[in-house]
Simulated scan of single mutants.
Amino acid sequence: MRIVINYTIKPVSVSAASALAANFLLLLFEIARSTTQNNMHWTVYILRCADGSLYTGITTDLTRRIKAHDAGKGARYTQGRGPFQLVHQEFYENRAEATKRELSIKSLSRSQKLELISAYSAS
């Protein structure tokens, strides 16, 4: 992504120039932060562990997160339970929505989770 900002600098005192530069940097940081947050998508995922158990989590980078689980650096629950199979994923625009969905999935019984997985894999 490329952001172009046209900004004209007029002659000012040194202290005014410092304040102007500081405000300009704050503006750039705010643009970068809001752009990053607005383009971030969250994934709610379910992994089937080698022992047959199911793990539910959220991330903004599913590939990186699964690699972390595989390396034993993911959630404490998944340590020593690999290899993993990705069996379900859903996408959300923000962390709040993803967290709510993660918690709702975690509150399901195992049989309800398996129904969810099979319903999505059938469609």
Rank of each mutant, 00 (worst) to 15 (best):
S104P: 00
G72C: 08
T99R: 07
V44S: 06
R81I: 07
I3Y: 08
L25Q: 04
A22Q: 09
A71K: 10
H88I: 01
L28E: 09
E93Q: 09
L116R: 02
S118M: 08
C49F: 14
L20I: 07
V12S: 11
T60V: 09
F84C: 11
V14L: 15
I5A: 10
L86M: 11
V14W: 09
I58E: 14
P11K: 14
Q85Y: 02
K10G: 01
L25V: 10
L25I: 05
Y92H: 15
M40Y: 08
K67G: 06
A21R: 14
G52I: 04
N38D: 08
K113L: 11
T78L: 10
K106A: 14
N39S: 11
Y120P: 00
V44I: 08
V4F: 11
A22M: 03
N38M: 05
S13R: 13
Y55P: 04
L86S: 09
L116D: 02
S15P: 00
E102A: 11
M1L: 13
A21C: 06
E102M: 15
S123A: 14
R110H: 07
E97Y: 05
Q89L: 10
T63G: 15
D51M: 02
F84K: 08
P11D: 15
S111P: 00
Y7W: 09
G52R: 07
S104R: 13
V12R: 14
G72S: 05
I5E: 14
D61P: 00
T59E: 12
T43F: 09
A119I: 01
I46L: 13
T8N: 13
R65C: 12
S109P: 00
L27F: 13
L116T: 02
E30V: 01
S107I: 01
L114M: 14
L114R: 08
K113V: 03
T36F: 07
V12H: 06
L20M: 13
S13E: 12
N6K: 15
L108D: 02
S15H: 04
G80T: 00
T35V: 11
R95G: 05
G74S: 07
C49H: 10
T43W: 03
S118A: 12
L28A: 10
E90S: 15
S53L: 11
E93V: 03
Q89P: 05
T8R: 11
T59I: 09
R81S: 03
E90H: 05
V44A: 05
G57L: 14
R101E: 08
N6Q: 12
G82N: 03
I66P: 12
A50C: 07
P83C: 06
I5F: 04
K67D: 08
Q37S: 06
P83E: 04
K73Y: 01
L26C: 00
K73A: 05
I66T: 07
T63R: 15
I117W: 02
Y120M: 06
A50L: 03
T63V: 13
Y7M: 05
W42E: 11
A19F: 06
F29N: 04
N94H: 12
T60L: 01
I9G: 10
G57F: 10
N6T: 10
A50E: 06
